[in-house]
Computed example of a mutant assay.
Amino acid sequence: MATLQTLINNIDYFYEITKIPMFILNKNKIIDHYPQFFFHLPKDCFKYLINSSMTRWGKVGILSSKSDITFFIIYEEYTICFGPMLCDSLHRYQSPKEIVFFNHLIKKPSINDILKKCISFDNQKFTYIQLIYQFLFNDYLSIEDMRCILHDNKKSEAEEEVKEIIITKRDYTNKIYTYLEERKFLKYIEEGESMSARSFGINFIHSESEALSHDQLQSMKYKVVATITLMTRQVISANVPLEDAYGTSDIYIRKVDSATSSQRLNEVFMHSIIDFCALVKKNKKANYPFWIRNCIEYINQNLHKNLSLLDISNELQMNPAYISNQFKKIVGISLRDYINKRKVEEAKFLIQCTNVSLLEISTTLSFADQSHFSKVFKKYTDISPNQYKNKLKK
């Protein structure tokens, strides 16, 4: 209960920092605690939604629609709700009726109030939920876990739409931008070949294909956002750090959103290609063997764990001594140094972008204790975590 009480005591602070409303429901699914600056929802407003619509996966549940998303963490006899958060950052909501969550309320707030008090869901917001989950269960909730939940939630409602799309695509067989051409474009991105990628990119967004919206500009925006998403994943596979890749993606998706003409959209798209290619060139490493790239990917996805050489050798199904010896020869630093450096980079990111305490960051990244965290952090930055945090405040 002490752990839950910590969340209760910080509900207002959590909303102030993250703009994610957090609600604590009792065993009867009635709201016990809520952020005072968010809407004062009916005490039983989640009860019906949870019973009728929530998809549950382990200790996590989700309510999602085309307009909004709410996460639930089941903790003992309590339910902790995060949301609603808006889903579609490209859509300009004009009425509360367009946002499914608020349709369940008898008294609906104005659209302006909703847009002021509700934030769009993205990877950063999911990071906050991951931290709360880690705090409650000392366990890790991955993005893949979230995708499993979303997939289960969307599967049934999407089946008819998929059938319709398949039928429609038959009429566009000769016009659709093919998978092989897409791979060629992404190969240019992975190699940092900006000029070739831009040449391909121009043909792509102006190629004839099925309309994604009745509005031509909106249809082009959807195609550009989809391509930015593909480029983001491609540069990550080329060893670009996650924060750089997703940060660039977020910047350009916002620019796409605000574009008011096809000419401006073309400019944004071309600049996104240039910047993604620049990231690849900046972070380009030697031609690492496939197993090294797998090793690095495994480390990056498991920074919350106390990673050991044995864990990695089991994952790669390779000899531990060989991994240790060859990793240092190829990458230039020892495996342990690489793991610690990545943990420190992640700690710096959390210090910069969240208000999570240094103790919680230390625990989340599986350091032995806060003293060990401070020692490792200082080894790679020359200052302590506390000094780094104070430096950012100036």
Rank of each mutant, 00 (worst) to 15 (best):
A278S: 14
P241A: 04
A211P: 07
H304M: 12
S89G: 00
S142D: 06
K341E: 12
M270W: 03
N302P: 04
L86C: 05
S357Q: 09
I205L: 13
S249G: 02
F290D: 14
H304V: 14
Y322W: 13
Q370M: 14
I330C: 02
I323K: 07
E160K: 11
Q130A: 12
Y188S: 10
F204W: 08
I251R: 02
D275Q: 07
N112D: 13
V280T: 11
R170M: 07
L131S: 07
P385E: 04
I132H: 00
Q130E: 14
D122Y: 06
A286T: 15
L186A: 02
K154Q: 11
R342F: 00
C148Q: 13
I50N: 04
Y34S: 06
C353V: 15
S110E: 13
K255R: 13
K394W: 12
H33L: 04
S194W: 03
F327R: 06
I253T: 08
L4W: 12
V224Q: 01
T260I: 11
R198W: 02
S237K: 13
C277Y: 05
E98M: 08
F14H: 06
R233Q: 09
I236Q: 09
N325S: 14
R147W: 07
I167V: 14
Y380A: 10
K47Q: 11
C118P: 09
N266P: 01
F349P: 04
S110T: 15
D275T: 15
K66E: 10
Q387E: 11
S67D: 02
F276A: 05
P21D: 00
K155R: 14
L115R: 08
L150C: 12
I236W: 01
N294C: 05
F373L: 03
L242F: 15
K184F: 11
T70P: 03
E346H: 12
A347W: 09
I31G: 03
M318R: 14
D122T: 00
I361K: 02
H104E: 09
L115Q: 10
M146Y: 14
E164T: 15
S249K: 01
E315T: 13
Y388R: 01
Y140A: 09
I312N: 00
C87S: 11
E191M: 05
L115S: 04
S207D: 02
S156E: 12
G332Y: 07
F377H: 06
V100A: 10
S209L: 06
A211D: 08
V235I: 15
L4G: 04
